[in-house]
């Protein structure tokens, strides 16, 4: 068995962020060093509480949760209450967490972990890239230490504007810092994540697992499926952020292309767009591994297998 991949999840839970955490918490393929939070789907105080709630229900009591940036680098904060509800994770009712967050700021946590590492830590941002960009600016020495950044964001079309996906749109300046950093980047954008839809049939399979965590995941998916149907007319719940963690566990589930991706920060209509050079017209070297397709059977089997590892009586 290969060594578990060390990861830090930088997130804004978030229904799909919660599923990403739950996968990382139970799958031996990854070692979850910590969770950092940021403003995104909801305000950072809310996403931090949500992260603590998820850790507590999953029994991840020793996993550090460090709160990060309350707003983007330059722009005004924007949240996604129409998709995730006011709390950022509406739907399931969870007890108030007894776990507390780390005293360290998310940016400092990321810097400390990376500097102390042998260059073997993968960052998994599933939210606006504010914390990652701030960490790179605060301590540039971390940049060569990052093994890989596996992020959920962007795509060749948008879900917040016609051009831009939410995570990149919320802090495009931060995304520009990260995409131009030279760190190996793997991007799970909407082209891929919209193919990772938990349909009612998939939800039934997860329900059959029958442990408290699988029940919680089904509640998350039901709320998420409802808003996605209302806002976008989808028939299933796309579990965007979880794709990044699945990749860390088994990259062979996806197919990729190495492409040039630039972040637009100036256009009136195109702010926050990941400008993906699909046809190679810019002549620039590729800087991103873009995930474009997935093996549905293997993907959902990994999901079911991992959630089954949680005990029946958590």
């Amino acid at each position: 068995m290969t060594e578990a991949k060390k990861i830090i999840i930088d997130c804004d839970p978030g229904h799909d962020d919660a599923i990403a955490i739950l996968l990382a918490g139970a799958n031996p393929g990854v070692e979850l060093l910590g969770i950092t939070t940021v403003a995104g789907n909801a305000e950072v105080d809310k996403t931090t509480i949500n992260a603590l709630k998820v850790c507590e229900i999953a029994g991840l009591l020793d996993t550090p949760v460090a709160k990060g940036a309350p707003q983007p680098l330059v722009r005004k904060r924007e949240t996604a209450a129409d998709i995730h509800g006011d709390s950022g994770m509406d739907g399931p009712i969870l007890p108030t967490p007894t776990m507390t967050m780390s005293e360290e700021h998310a940016v400092d946590f990321i810097i400390r972990q990376l500097l102390a590492s042998d260059g073997d830590i993968t960052l998994v941002p599933t939210a606006p890239l504010t914390n990652i960009a701030m960490a790179m600016r605060k301590e540039p020495a971390i940049i060569p230490k990052i093994r890989e950044i596996v992020l959920m964001g962007g795509g060749t079309f948008g879900n917040w504007t016609p051009a831009a996906e939410f995570n990149i749109f919320v802090d495009a300046e931060a995304a520009k810092v990260v995409f131009e950093s030279g760190v190996p980047l793997t991007m799970f954008g909407l082209d891929l994540t919209h193919k990772a839809q938990a349909t009612p049939e998939i939800q039934e399979r997860i329900k059959q697992i029958g442990n408290p965590i699988s029940d919680f995941v089904v509640e998350l998916l039901q709320f998420f499926m409802h808003t996605y149907k209302e806002v976008f007319g989808f028939e299933g719940a796309p579990i965007h952020d979880a794709c990044c963690v699945v990749y860390c566990i088994d990259p062979s589930i996806f197919t990729y292309r190495d492409l040039r991706v630039d972040i637009e920060t100036k256009g009136e209509f195109s702010y926050g767009m990941t400008v993906v050079d699909m046809l190679g017209v810019t002549g620039k070297e590729p800087n991103v591994k873009v995930a474009l397709d997935l093996d549905q059977d293997k993907f959902w089997q990994l999901m079911v297998d991992t959630l089954s590892k949680y005990s029946k009586s958590n």
């Binding site: 637009e264 100036k266 209509f269 195109s270 767009m273």
Partner: peptide, 15 residues
């Protein structure tokens, strides 16, 4: 049809 005139990477895009 509109044309992007501001973008760093998207100027000239037709919408």
């Amino acid at each position: 049809v509109k044309v992007d005139t501001e973008g760093e990477h998207t100027a000239g895009q037709t919408y």
